[in-house]
Design a protein around this nucleic acid. Sequence first.
DNA 1: ACAAAAGTGTTGAGAGTACACCCATGC
DNA 2: GCATGGGTGTACTCTCAACACTTTTGT
Lengths: 239, 239
Amino acid sequence: MNYTKGGLDTTRQRTGSGKAGCLGVTVDVVIFTLRDAKLQVLLVCRRRGPEMDTWAIPGGEIEADEALRDAALRTLEAQTGLADVYLEQLYTFGDPDRDPGRRVIAVSYFAVVPASGVVPRADDDRDHVRWWPIDSLPALAFDHADILHYALQRLRYKLEYTAIGFELLPEEFTLTELQTAYEIVLGEELDKRNFRRKILGAGVLEPSGGFRTGEGRPARLYRYRDDAVAEVKARRLFP
Amino acid sequence: MNYTKGGLDTTRQRTGSGKAGCLGVTVDVVIFTLRDAKLQVLLVCRRRGPEMDTWAIPGGEIEADEALRDAALRTLEAQTGLADVYLEQLYTFGDPDRDPGRRVIAVSYFAVVPASGVVPRADDDRDHVRWWPIDSLPALAFDHADILHYALQRLRYKLEYTAIGFELLPEEFTLTELQTAYEIVLGEELDKRNFRRKILGAGVLEPSGGFRTGEGRPARLYRYRDDAVAEVKARRLFP
DNA sequence: ACAAAAGTGTTGAGAGTACACCCATGC
DNA sequence: GCATGGGTGTACTCTCAACACTTTTGT
């Protein structure tokens, strides 16, 4: 008894462009995708201002009349051009001493975008934007390494008991592609027959009718059923 | 594909005491306890200012040099006198049109305090403070009903796969008391033998050596083991 | 001795896990 | 016809869920 849990509690600021004494709120979006058989995140490198030449999670200040989620969607669209993807609020980082300048609260989100060729684009061409594999990240600005770590933990966790894995794939996919996606994110191999039995038994997929041809026997294509109830109660530990 | 999940996204402001044009950040704490065999939450009723005579979740503005979690702890201590309890960040509500006045972002937390006689106290004696059973709540200010609903959902959810249930009880408790606590929060009856086997099998309890005497046979007292690994992986749904 | 609450085992069903071979196509 | 990846079933183990009686104390 009398211990406390509940995760992280640190924050850092990025831009520091406002008036001193007035609180700022930024929205930072950790964007995940699958590329080259690796889980990757989108990072930006500022070419000007403070924290120059350090990689950071994309984001920015919320606008006066903008909902938090809308600010996250705006950031996402600016960097990837994508609008209709999985987006979830992650955690709010608010440590006062994250930056010597003005205090900024960072509301973080995480997004999962399909693998099929998303070309990142800088919203300012003095900036760099690129995908980074999560197993070889650069040094990150402020507390962004904490945010990214927390996002990754949440992604892996949710992958196991929600249908978030489908977000990593294009609309139609083969079961082997799906299995590979799971294996990459979870970092472990899965048994083909058990995987198929379980995923088909969950009743969240339907055959699209098409086939993907390639080297060997053509593979049946599936799509995720929008009407599926995707978040199912996991086994209880207590009690 | 191409749908979005991720919960709530609304916000309201409570006090509105700052300068116009400058963003405010409040921390609101949903405090749960067990009283009279019911799950209850602490609410305050402001006797002055806007939203007068409407019940609200306790909270307040963060101070200039204060971490979010510290602001939540300060609120908690002000209302209950308790310091060392379970506290976890819940969600950040930031809708711009939550209040006609100045815009305020609300970072919400939830706390779980032990049943043993916590007497709430107003930090300003023009305010009222009291416990409300969650099955008979009053009308709530702003979007506080949403926040409370979300907190309750998270509490029930976490109860099933973490050791949060112990936070509702005093340091020493009998297995029957523990089972009753679970039954109240989950809203369902549990089998005594299965409950005991599972909870003892999890290895998170140790006998304190004492007994509680009463009507019938004395009951062995247990305590939660601080060193126990409490959050265990639940069964995967996918895949 | 009786009322009241504590404590204790077994069995059947369902889910998870491990494991190896045949099938359809392109070249 | 052979190389390549797609697709399929079964046996064992473990966990969950249902279910009723004995034990210890106070009065």
